[in-house]
Design a protein around this nucleic acid. Structure first.
Length: 582
DNA sequence: ACAAAGATGAGGCGCTTA
DNA sequence: TAAGCGCCTCATCTTTGT
């Protein structure tokens, strides 16, 4: 362990001036809500069904809603209203029924393609009486106002959020004002527009096929449900959201969510941020969540920030409002990120995004094998050859660098795709560079989540960085323009520590860097001592080893109890020590 | 010794089809 | 519903070459 009291000049980083590209995520929606009365859901309550059927909802929908929500009448109602809103927004022009506030900001242009796709085919699937008000006297006051708003054409999620934010006494007019304000802040791009690599749902040719439409309808509902990142309290398997955008990404329309509630036990400071692979074996994320104060994981695929995919789960107690991305926004297609490949890219290789960057790369021999396979034919190769080449390209993330020549990404290119400065890992062996980079954060993704700290700590922060690797967290904070007062870094690999220290010096840091090698040897007294010396920690950040969780591991994918991945519990231990001392 | 190449599937999910 | 298919995955270990 060493302390480096650097006394360099103020660095000349181009602080991205304020929140230029700030995207706000105040759109309505709902997070997981506990259904207190769901315990006896095995007996479908016919009275309950009658009640909702009496309101004008189709019986089959009511049954389905009960199936989904148990017997919590409020949840059932919300689900049914969601069906209703979906129905209304599809069967007619949503804006046409909107009041002066124009609630559907992004439906004018962008949703048209969406509708054309398949949703308009759902329009006449179900019908129920339009005048729900007739039955409104059986509803609570809250439910009635919710109905009012949805009948005006406001999305259910936004109406619900507005009611929660504005309190029980708010008038409908006030609620409308809130919703409108939220919508103004909303991005107008739609996530299904651009980057849906392979749209799985085709336009059903027979629009009258009721059964097919039902399937699509259910699919859409499930999608909406997954978007909220529902985490069932009964230890139900945790489902990954699709699209995997967590609480929102800058480049896509945010999923609807309703803020979130974090237990007092989990509330910062200190803020904590934990990361690992999204596609871990079953039960792993449930366990991780349980040990991190039951905070719901945020699953994000970095392909929304980069030209390469990276599906990761993040658990943190940071605010999720007023995030902003690093600028400039990085290229998000292969052609933009690697323009020189365009010239050689064959039309039959329709990849626009790279797969996840891993720690091993394809060999030069493979490049030769592929070249040989391609050179036997002039012009477009036979389908079998295409398939072989594409398979290898996908498996090894190869790009076209010459005629009939594919190659793995260069370390510099990997650095760029992951958001690191060019040559960040220069000076270590090529193999080590690939390995260290493959184990690292995607900087833009993490920075987006951490961006909320800039406002909270305008004078800089103290960071405890566990499993630092090559310093993804530090680079992210630095690029955000957050001054690093003290960084206490714990990293086992000497090679990675070298990269980190080298970056620290080259980026003219004015704070202190304290390095440890072994997290297991970092005991309570030492933590206490170092905290006293730096003045406590504002952020505890780290991604614990994924070795035993990653699907790529064919030898020892042993889950959280695996040799390396069990170090997750060291993260928990150290975090709790820090919380205890603070 | 060091670096590159090759061999080594399971598991999970989305989606389609029977 | 269930079975089947396509796709992807922060990797490890041994062998070979320099």
């Amino acid at each position: 362990m060493t302390i480096d009291p650097s006394t360099k000049d103020i660095d000349d980083i181009d602080w991205n001036s304020e929140d230029d590209q700030e995207i706000e995520d105040t759109t309505g929606g709902r997070t997981a809500t506990s259904n207190e009365e769901a315990s006896s859901s095995s007996t479908p309550c016919s009275k309950l069904i009658q009640n909702f059927v009496g309101m004008g909802f189709p019986r089959e929908l009511v049954a389905k809603a009960i199936e989904q929500n148990g017997e919590d009448s409020e949840l059932i109602l919300e689900t049914l209203l969601t069906y209703s809103v979906l129905e209304n927004s599809l069967s007619e022009n949503p804006c046409a029924i909107s009041p002066q506030h124009k609630p559907c900001l992004n439906s004018d242009e962008s949703s048209s393609g969406y509708n054309e796709n398949f949703l308009d085919d759902l329009s006449d699937t179900y019908s129920w009486s339009e005048d729900d008000e007739e039955n409104a006297d059986t509803l609570s006051d809250k439910e009635r106002r919710l109905l009012d708003l949805t009948n005006m054409g406001y999305p259910m999620e936004e109406a619900s959020l507005a009611m929660d934010r504005c309190g029980p006494e708010a008038t409908v007019a006030e609620l409308i004002d809130f919703i409108s304000a939220a919508q103004v802040a909303k991005s107008d791009s739609l996530y299904w527009q651009e980057d849906d690599i392979k749209p799985k749902l085709k336009n059903p040719s027979n629009a009258n096929d009721r059964h097919k439409r039902r399937k699509l309808y259910n699919y859409e509902l499930q999608r909406k449900k997954r978007q909220t990142g529902v985490f069932d309290e009964d230890n139900q398997p945790l489902r990954l959201p699709k699209p995997m955008v967590g609480f929102g990404v800058p480049t896509e329309t945010s999923p609807t969510f309703q803020g979130r509630t974090i237990s007092s036990e989990a509330t910062g400071p200190p803020y904590f941020y934990y990361e690992n692979v999204a596609l871990a074996p079953k039960g792993v994320w449930e366990t991780i969540t349980r040990h991190l104060f039951d905070v719901e994981p945020e699953f994000v695929d970095s392909l929304y920030f980069s030209a390469s995919a990276r599906k990761r789960g993040y658990i943190h107690n940071l605010p999720i409002e007023n995030r902003f991305p690093l600028l400039p926004l990085p290229p998000r297609t292969i052609h933009e990120a690697l323009p020189l490949t365009r010239r050689w890219w064959p039309a039959w290789d329709y990849r626009t995004k790279l797969n996840c960057i891993q720690s091993a790369v394809g060999s030069a021999k493979l490049t030769e094998r592929i070249r040989n396979a391609l050179e036997v034919s002039v012009g477009e190769p036979p389908l079998a050859v295409q398939n072989y080449v594409l398979e290898e390209c996908r498996r090894w993330n190869l790009v076209w660098v010459g005629l009939n020549k594919v190659a793995p990404l260069e370390p510099d290119e990997v650095e760029m795709l992951l958001g690191f400065p060019k040559s960040h890992t220069r000076g270590i062996s090529r193999t080590d560079r690939y390995k260290a980079l493959g184990n690292s954060f995607q900087v833009d993704t993490v920075a987006y989540h951490l961006s909320v700290l800039k406002e909270l700590y305008p004078r800089g922060i103290n960071v405890l960085s566990l499993f630092s690797g090559i310093g993804g967290a530090e680079v992210a904070l630095h690029r955000l323009g957050i001054h690093l007062k003290n960084v206490v870094s714990v990293e086992k690999s000497e090679v990675s520590r070298t990269v980190m220290r080298s970056w620290w010096e080259q980026s003219n840091q004015t704070g202190n860097l304290v390095e440890y090698g072994d997290i297991e040897g970092l005991e309570r007294d030492e933590i206490k001592r170092v905290m006293a010396s730096v003045g406590g920690f504002d952020l505890v950040i780290g991604g614990s080893p994924c070795n035993n969780l990653s699907g790529s591991n064919r030898v020892s994918r042993d889950g959280l109890e695996g040799k390396e991945s069990s170090l997750f519990f060291e993260y928990v231990r150290v975090l709790n020590v820090v919380k205890g001392i603070l």
